[in-house]
C-alpha cells in the first residue's frame, strides 16, 4: 500500500455564489521515501492539493488514503494526531503565530504531542540553527524578514521528525545561498527516509526531486521521473546507490 493514495479527488470552492472547481478528478500515488516536486502555473491548484494531502481539509469528491487509513472516515481527534505526528508543513504564507518568539513558534507542534519530549527546547534550537537562525530565536515574526520567517516555518515543520514533509514554496523568499542550504537540508532528510513533497516555481529546485508532477487547471498534466536524480547527488560522501 502506498503512503499517499488519491482516488479521483475533486475540490470545489464556492466563492461569491460561483462554484470554482480547483482540482478535477486527480488520482495519484506516492510511495514512502519518495522525493516529489510539484510545479505548474499560478492558480493551478498546487496549494489546494497539498492542503488535501496534509489532511487540512477534505476533498469535495474522491477518496484519500494516507498510510493505510481513509482520511474521510477518521475522527477529528485522530486527524489531529496524524497532522501532529506524521506531517510537517511549510506554508506559502508562513502562518506563524503573531507576537510569539521564533523558538516558541518552532516548539508549538510539540505541545500537541502525547508527550512533550524533555529536550524540546534543545531540539527547537537545533532545527533553528540548521536553517541558519541560531541568532534570531527570541525574535517574533514581526521582527523577522520574509526569508527569516520562511526559515522559521521550515524549522517548525522539522521539529517533530515527520514522516512526510509538505513544503509549499519553501525557498520562494530566500536568496540563492540560503535557498541552497535549505535544499541541502531537504535532500539530507530524504536520504534519511523522509517523504518530501515540494511545491516550487523554481526549475532548479524542482530538479532536486526524483519525481516531478506538473499541475495545470486542476489536473495532473505530467508525472515524470527525474533522469538526473541521484540519491547521492548533494553529498559526495553519500551511499551512492544507482
Amino acid at each position: 500500500m502506498s503512503l499517499i493514495e488519491l482516488r479521483s479527488i475533486s475540490k470545489t470552492y464556492k466563492s461569491a455564489g460561483l462554484d470554482v472547481e480547483v482540482l478535477k478528478d486527480v488520482s495519484l500515488r506516492i510511495e514512502e521515501g519518495e522525493y516529489v516536486s510539484i510545479i505548474g502555473p499560478s492558480g493551478a491548484g498546487k496549494s489546494t492539493l497539498m492542503t488535501i494531502m496534509g489532511c487540512l481539509g477534505l476533498p469535495t469528491q474522491g477518496i484519500y488514503f494516507l498510510d493505510g487509513e481513509e482520511v474521510g472516515q477518521v475522527s477529528d481527534r485522530e486527524l489531529s494526531r496524524i497532522r501532529n505526528e506524521k506531517i510537517g508543513f511549510v506554508f506559502q504564507a508562513f502562518h506563524l503565530l503573531p507576537g510569539v518568539k521564533a523558538i516558541d513558534n518552532v516548539m508549538m507542534p510539540l505541545l500537541y504531542s502525547d508527550k512533550v519530549p524533555k529536550d524540546a527546547k534543545q531540539r527547537a534550537e537545533t532545527v533553528l540553527e540548521k536553517v541558519g537562525l541560531g541568532h534570531r530565536m527570541g525574535h517574533t515574526p514581526g521582527q523577522l524578514s520574509g526569508g527569516e520567517q520562511q526559515r522559521v516555518t521550515i524549522a517548525r515543520s522539522l521539529i517533530n521528525n515527520p514522516k512526510i514533509l509538505l513544503a509549499d514554496e519553501p525557498t520562494g523568499n530566500l536568496d540563492s545561498k540560503n535557498g541552497v542550504e535549505i535544499m541541502k537540508t531537504f535532500d539530507q532528510l530524504n536520504r534519511e527516509g523522509t517523504t518530501i513533497i515540494l511545491i516550487t516555481h523554481d526549475q532548479e529546485v524542482a530538479l532536486h526531486a526524483q519525481r516531478i508532477l506538473t499541475i495545470k487547471d486542476g489536473q495532473i498534466e505530467s508525472d515524470q521521473w527525474n533522469e538526473n536524480f541521484q540519491k547521492s547527488q548533494a553529498s559526495p560522501s553519500g551511499s551512492g546507490v544507482e
Binding site: G54, D76, S80, R83, F89, P109
Partner: peptide, 19 residues
C-alpha cells in the same frame, strides 16, 4: 479574525478541538 487564524495554525500542527 486574528484568533481564528491562530486556531487554524494550531490545528494544522495537531491541536485538538478540546485543546
Amino acid at each position: 479574525r486574528e484568533r481564528v487564524r491562530e486556531i487554524g495554525i494550531r490545528r494544522c500542527f495537531g491541536a485538538r478541538r478540546s485543546d
